[in-house]
Design a protein around this nucleic acid. Sequence first.
DNA 1: CGAACTGTGCGACATTGTCGAACACCCGCC
DNA 2: GGCGGGTGTTCGACAATGTCGCACAGTTCG
Lengths: 254, 254
Amino acid sequence: MPGPIQSLSRAAAIMRLLAGGERRLGLSEVATSLDLAKGTAHGILRTLQQEGFVEQDPESGKYQLGAELLRLGQSYLDVHELRARALVWADDLARAGGETVYLGVLHQHGVLIVHHVFRPDDTRQVLEVGSMHPLHSTALGKVLLAYDPVARGELGDAPLEAYTPRTLTSLEDIDAECALIRERGWADAIEETWEGVASIGALIQDRRRNPVGAVCVSGAVERVCEDGFVRPQLVASVRDAARAISRDLGAGRF
Amino acid sequence: MPGPIQSLSRAAAIMRLLAGGERRLGLSEVATSLDLAKGTAHGILRTLQQEGFVEQDPESGKYQLGAELLRLGQSYLDVHELRARALVWADDLARAGGETVYLGVLHQHGVLIVHHVFRPDDTRQVLEVGSMHPLHSTALGKVLLAYDPVARGELGDAPLEAYTPRTLTSLEDIDAECALIRERGWADAIEETWEGVASIGALIQDRRRNPVGAVCVSGAVERVCEDGFVRPQLVASVRDAARAISRDLGAGRF
DNA sequence: CGAACTGTGCGACATTGTCGAACACCCGCC
DNA sequence: GGCGGGTGTTCGACAATGTCGCACAGTTCG
């Protein structure tokens, strides 16, 4: 199999660089960061700008991500079959459980949130569609690790970040946890990524029983847990929702 | 000035094609639609797939947009200065006006919604961030047409679509409307894009007084209008919000 | 005011992307 | 069940393009 098309890979690297923490980058910064000649970086940025993927501030000359990415990102959501089929079930789960609901899919080294139903109350909440959650410390991520070898392969050798004292950081612990998840059919994460937050997740499968994503409820540990364990009613609701979504995707009776 | 990098332009065309109405496309469909050789289309799709911009369904072999677009689209929003500065003002406007608030920027032939505050009530609403609204028939669009020559240039010669019987469809009417908008400083759109919906928009400028976007309130014509005109209190609120956002962007006193 | 940086543009040329052809596989129709 | 017509994938020749060194105008900072 031949390699990738060089200029496309370079363009992708430039866009990922611009997506990083820094708000805007100059041409020279882009070229230096990616070890490209300035003329090369300039040619790629000029074309990305013409296509709307990058914008250049006319005053400072610095580059940033462009609006076409937002538009295509929205189109990705519009045609995402899993998300389309999950919308109603996710709303029901949020209403029944009274907590935030996330729908996620494996993407690179993490879980990409493709749908987010706000907790049904009056508090101010921030939409997280498009953001990445960690694999090893969230209910969504651990469910995918348990059932999807591709996800498990993403962990590699790098040390796992300990977000809280409760985060699992050794592969042995992760694998033991995954065996438990497979045995009981759901994952929990109690203050493993954020202090004070607990969540419960379950796998979504397609009609060939391949893992395609996960759904979870998430909320304050005081509401999601009792006696140190996640509440069984919530577990049941999440699993019901996961099965319903899987059936909608053609996974057949469980 | 040299032309664009061919393979980048082609890749952009492929992604835009996949963003169109059709859910998924086969390799041959992509190649035929864009008048490319199958080997060429395949090479571009393979690289886009490796970079996460495109996904291929393993069963049917068909291609669709990939998750990396959602992630980068979200990053575009994260670093979008106009949006960041407008968030609080937009919330205030929704609360004060009791209606939906949109923040939009010019993008290609339309207005791209970069922020959307739901009407503060219990009804079910659909987030429109990432979607495009028309230029010639929305308050957001008409404000941009009035103040931004680049926007005006996007109308070209193509006939303007009449979404409702009230939509302006001739360039003369559009230009007259824009003169009125410039004179009074705000735009309205009463059932010009959607039956039963009215909206009021105002321009947002940066510190060099360049037009960079627009903000509007939008709702049922029965609430937004009285005696056939948009309610003056709402107009004042929208203009206040637009000025506040512009000041935050360094536009100085008005 | 000068040095050191910036972004932009140009052109030579080496490398790469393009594309015709072939192939294995699949699907639908008879 | 077989056949024809399509699919997606791969390969390699080669023409076209993308790369990059260099020069330049402009800006910034000490």
